[in-house]
């Protein structure tokens, strides 16, 4: 199995504060990689580096080498907008735009130059179907997306991300704001999606990592302590700190 993203010796500073310390990782294609670790250990920071959403924060400095499908994502000639189209993102708090369900999904494709109504209709329908929310919203596509429940909003956000046809999907604690039923729906959805997409998911919930992920990376204080197959990490962790964390001795 090949790797989509390769990270070598990556460090990141917010001003003086070093949030990521020398991380090396290779994210395998068409699988789910979970990032776990106590809050503040740099999971979100690392995730946002992969689609360069950190660029927007003043005072951020990044060193090291990150390659997406072999190309350096910090190369001068890279098109950031295109990179973000390839590597989609779903946020912790569902954040649909304050516009109709249809316009939410069509936003990305329109951005990338698709204007034909029939083509957009098709993308909207397919994306909503792939995100397992089509049946719930197909009769109210023109209604404001903010009227949906939290769980529906999050699936809408996933559909919106899928609408620009990404290869990788970054998810930052996508279920932490949701109730258990919505959470399990999203987990099922994510398991479906890995047939087509490479998924990287931050979670603070270790059971969730066990339930859905193929690989797990354990972060602590900005370092990547351990990375491997999920069953290995949880059954025979190599590092004492990983063991302490997954057995609930801290964090």
């Amino acid at each position: 199995m090949s790797n989509v993203i390769n990270v070598k010796d990556m460090c990141l500073w917010y001003g003086e504060h070093q949030a990521i310390k020398n991380v090396n990782i290779e994210i395998p294609e068409k699988s789910i990689t979970a990032f776990i670790g106590p809050s503040g250990c740099g999971k979100s920071t690392f995730l946002k580096t992969l689609n360069r959403m950190n660029d927007l924060i003043p005072g951020v400095k990044i060193t090291g080498d990150i390659r997406y499908e072999g190309t350096d994502i910090f190369a001068k000639d890279i098109d950031v907008n295109n990179l973000r189209k390839e590597i989609g993102m779903v946020f912790q708090k569902p954040n649909p735009f304050p516009m109709s369900i249809y316009d939410n999904i069509a936003y990305g494709p329109r951005t990338h130059g698709i204007t034909k109504k029939t083509e957009l209709d098709e993308i909207v329908e397919n994306s909503l179907k792939r995100a397992a929310i089509w049946d719930e919203v197909k009769d109210r596509l023109k209604k404001n997306a903010l009227g949906l429940s939290g769980g529906q909003q999050q699936r809408l956000c996933i559909a919106r991300a899928l609408a620009v046809d990404p290869k990788v999907l970054l998810m930052d604690e996508p279920t932490s704001a949701l109730d258990p039923i919505s959470t399990s729906r999203i987990e099922e959805l994510v398991l479906d999606l890995k047939e087509t997409y490479t998924i990287v998911m931050v979670t603070h919930n270790m059971q969730q990592a066990v339930r859905v992920s193929d690989y797990t990376a354990f972060f602590l204080l900005g370092e990547l302590v351990e990375f491997g197959r999920t069953e290995d990490i949880f059954s025979q962790p190599q590092d004492k700190r990983t063991e302490d964390y997954i057995t609930g001795r801290f964090g």
């Binding site: 689609n51 959403m53 927007l56 907008n81 295109n82 990179l83 973000r84 189209k85 989609g88 993102m89 946020f91 708090k93 954040n95 649909p96 735009f97 304050p98 516009m99 936003y107 990305g108 951005t111 990338h112 956000c157 919106r160 991300a161 620009v164």
Partner: peptide, 23 residues
């Protein structure tokens, strides 16, 4: 969050301001 969502879809900052922030 609205602006982040737009940028993460590959919209440029200017596009984001006029299509998301202003509306």
């Amino acid at each position: 969050e609205y602006e982040d969502a737009s940028l993460a879809l590959g919209a440029t900052p200017i596009e984001t301001y006029f299509r998301v922030s202003v509306p």
